[in-house]
Amino acid sequence: MTRKQGRWPKIDQDGGIEDVTLLILEWLGEQGVNAMIRVDAERVADNAPAWTFAASGGPLKHGMRTDGSAMQQCMSAALARLREAGLSVPF
């Protein structure tokens, strides 16, 4: 991972969270947070919330997980929880 400053592209304000999810994951990694988002094919087949975001380490006192039926729903909930935990995610 590079340590360049000011490399974040301008975000299309009309786009959704899906446009910045990888940037969020990269930013979290730079803060020392281990993070991932995944989709579970078995849960898709069962019509269950198939998307999961998980994070731990760095400034997070406890690990966290959010689930959602759509990636946007999952990441929106994850951002809210990250902010509640004191991380000012810049996206």
Rank of each mutant, 00 (worst) to 15 (best):
M64L: 13
N34P: 00
R3L: 04
G63K: 08
A54F: 02
Q73H: 10
I37Q: 12
V33G: 02
R43T: 07
I11S: 09
F53N: 03
M1D: 06
I24D: 03
L23Y: 14
D46Q: 11
V20W: 05
G68N: 02
K61F: 06
S56V: 00
D67E: 15
A77F: 04
Q13S: 08
E26K: 08
R43E: 15
N34W: 03
E18T: 14
G57E: 09
A55N: 03
W27I: 00
I17T: 11
I17V: 14
G58Y: 02
T21M: 14
M64D: 07
D46M: 09
M71E: 15
L23G: 14
G6A: 06
A55I: 01
A50M: 11
M71C: 15
N34E: 10
E26R: 09
Q73R: 08
G63S: 10
G63L: 00
V39N: 12
C74P: 02
Q13D: 03
A78R: 14
V20T: 10
A45L: 14
I17P: 08
C74M: 06
L23D: 15
A78E: 10
P59Q: 05
G32F: 03
D19S: 15
W27H: 06
I11K: 12
G15H: 11
D40T: 09
I17Y: 06
G68V: 01
E18L: 12
Q31H: 08
W51C: 04
A50N: 10
T21D: 08
A77L: 12
A70W: 04
A50P: 09
V39K: 13
L25P: 06
G58T: 00
R65P: 03
P9L: 07
Q31W: 03
N34G: 02
N47S: 15
G57A: 09
W27K: 03
W8M: 13
A45T: 12
V33C: 05
L60D: 05
M36C: 01
T21Q: 13
P9A: 10
T2L: 08
A54K: 12
L25K: 09
N34C: 01
D19H: 11
W27R: 02
K10Y: 08
D46G: 05
G68S: 03
V33Q: 05
K61S: 13
G57P: 08
M71R: 15
Q73C: 01
G32R: 05
Q13Y: 02
C74G: 03
A45E: 15
C74E: 02
W8D: 14
W51N: 08
D46K: 13
E42P: 04
V20Y: 04
A45H: 12
A50L: 12
C74R: 04
E18N: 14
G32A: 02
Q72M: 07
